[in-house]
């Protein structure tokens, strides 16, 4: 528990203390909008932005791009000789870097169209990757949807499979708009059943959403009660 073996005003103590102040500042919004909340909200955005930038530089841009490009990973021995020759293939990085810099053209009214080139490139590669991703993700789902309606020796499993296939087909019929539906027809009725089944699904989502949001609150109160409050006794 916080407080045990923790020196007052040590770094660890300040971490918990400031964490509690930050949490209470945000909770103050529940009473009403106030400058205390706004100040901490903006502080959070600033810290998160700074953190995200350094994370990209630290984990990718510096070790995998700039360091080999600038030859900073080459070692100079005490006698002045290099540990290995500079690999000129790294100069090819300048091509994607220059292309990526076109993003900043969006800041110019006259040349903003250049940013569309790099945005288009990003959309293009995402589209190309989508082929592979969609089929790899979709096909196992499709195969799993074909279930036996009668399982010998297991009435429960047979019933479950029947409900499964009924729910799936009726829900898919609900979204099928190619042909005109006549009120009271088979397709309309099937679509109606599908709507009820989907309401069951949305009910599950609703219950799950409540659980998720409540968990966030429980964690914060757990911190305030067991760590922050413990600093003071």
């Amino acid at each position: 528990m916080a407080g045990e073996g923790m020196a007052f005003f040590s770094f660890a103590w300040w971490e918990i203390f400031l964490g509690g102040i930050s949490t209470l500042a945000v909770f103050s919004f529940l009473y009403r909008e106030n400058p205390f909340y706004r100040f901490f909200e903006h502080l959070y955005i600033g810290i998160a932005t700074g953190w995200g930038i350094i994370a990209a530089v630290r984990n990718f841009l510096w070790p995998r791009v700039f360091k080999p490009l600038l030859g900073a990973d080459l070692m100079v021995f005490p006698d002045g000789s290099l540990s290995q020759p500079y690999n000129q293939a790294y100069l090819l990085f300048l091509l994607p870097m220059s292309f990526g810099l076109l993003y900043y053209a969006i800041l110019s009214k006259r040349h903003s169209w250049l940013a569309q080139l790099v945005i288009g490139f990003e959309l293009g590669y995402a589209g190309g990757l989508a082929f592979k991703g969609t089929f790899i993700e979709l096909l196992p789902q499709l195969f799993d949807s074909f279930r036996p309606l009668y399982v010998p020796g297991s009435a429960a499993e047979s019933l479950a499979n029947i409900v499964f296939v009924l729910t799936l087909t009726s829900s898919m019929v609900y979204f099928f708009f190619t042909f005109k539906r006549t009120p009271g027809g088979i397709v309309s009725r099937c679509s109606g059943v599908g709507r009820w089944m989907m309401m069951g699904c949305f009910g599950a989502f609703f219950g799950s959403t409540i659980m998720a949001r409540m968990a966030l609150l429980v964690e914060r109160l757990d911190f305030l009660i067991h760590q922050w409050a413990a600093l003071f006794y």
């Binding site: 964490g19 998160a48 914060r220």
Partner: peptide, 23 residues
């Protein structure tokens, strides 16, 4: 670490925990 544990994590978690009350 002080910035992370004192501001970054608690502020982010608290912002999202407001949703519990709203929901």
């Amino acid at each position: 670490r002080l910035l992370e544990n004192g501001f970054f994590f608690p502020l982010g978690a608290a912002m999202f925990s407001l949703l519990a009350f709203y929901i």
